[in-house]
Design a protein around this nucleic acid. Structure first.
Lengths: 197, 197
DNA sequence: CGATTTGATACCTTATTCGATATCAATTGG
DNA sequence: CCAATTGATATCGAATAAGGTATCAAATCG
């Protein structure tokens, strides 16, 4: 495998992981078999363009040809978009959990606890979350989706609620830094290169 | 062939043509056989990533994965870079011609004509040229490179000199528009998309 | 008109992706 | 501890890109 290819491949893998998507889920969205995706990500194949495009589109990405001299500017914009992508994803996940909690009927635990958790979520929603924090929220969502919450094991439910409290405390005592105010790309550099034949 | 692939392929072909590079020249730079490049550009194959990367690099391009929401901004930057690429190329070509003319010894035509042409070139250098105009300059360069100019057919030389005058007159009477003052990309849009599972 | 350049086709052999399926080790969750 | 999920491997036939070489029609140019 060529070294230049890893760049693309690594970006695809990172994009999948950032979305919390498994290889099998990506497989079902693209039609590519899961083992193929594994091979691809490990850099042991030289994929065809159609495979790349299929994967990229399933991950909300496009393949673009960029003039070398425009690379710095483009990369700055891409990174900035990725940052926002993450925060949007987490916010959506948090809101989803809140609405799921709000709409449950009888619960195996006191109502007040649920309400308190909802308040915490309303705060959490406005922060960028770490990968671990996001994962915790997603797992809570997963169990609620499966079990409809009123027929849920009280211990399990309590564990998840505790993890929400934990996240709130982390954010309150150790808030993540805000986004940098201005991205540092430039359109107006002007180097001269000689090009004689 | 998939429709999504044409986008990349067409961009590669356009980039090659804009640089005035023949398929054979690109072939020798990349190691890919010329018929393969022809197939590729005609969209009749589904190339492997390594082929794409080889072609792209020979054309001063990089393959990048861009989040869909960042596409408008990225495309604006790419286009802006391409515009500057073109004007830089033409300026180089014009300067090359000027220096070639300046350094010729005995000429089959009056010295004053040569000097007048040099003056015209000094003006032309500062304009973005059309494809046809650029081509004319390149052809003049080509014959000078081959024949060392003092052993040149006077008629041929005169024809090229006339074409330079023609370009100057076109530019003087019908100047091309300047570049737009500010590219219209934005980093601060904020649409909401729903994403429920 | 003859010579050159350019892009397109055709043909071959070899190498490798593709697609499908099965399986395994490791991790995670109840 | 058992069950489920995840990513990695292996295998197999079919499809096809890669790589090389030869050739052709059209345009360009002297």
């Amino acid at each position: 495998m060529n070294h230049a290819l890893d760049h693309i491949v690594a970006a695809l893998k990172a994009a999948r992981e950032k979305k919390g998507m498994s290889q099998r889920e990506l497989s079902s969205r693209t039609g590519l078999p899961q083992p193929k995706i594994s091979n691809l990500e490990s850099g042991s194949v030289d994929p065809r363009l159609s495979s790349l495009v299929a994967l990229a589109r399933a991950l909300d990405l496009e393949i673009e040809l960029v003039p070398r001299r425009a690379l710095p500017a483009v990369e700055t914009i891409v990174r900035s978009a990725e940052r926002r992508e993450v925060t949007k994803t987490t916010a959506n996940e948090v809101r989803k959990l809140a609405s799921a909690l709000q709409s449950i009927g009888r619960t195996p635990i006191p109502r007040g606890i649920i309400d308190q958790t909802l308040n915490q979520l309303r705060m959490i929603e406005h922060f960028p979350l770490s990968a671990e924090q996001l994962e915790a929220i997603q797992k809570f969502n997963a169990v609620l989706k499966l079990s409809d919450a009123d027929e849920l094991d009280p211990a399990t439910l309590n564990r998840h609620i505790k993890s929400v409290s934990g996240i709130r405390n982390q954010l309150a005592h150790n808030p993540p830094p805000a986004l940098p105010p201005r991205p540092a790309y430039s359109l107006d550099d002007d180097e001269e290169e000689e090009d004689n034949a």
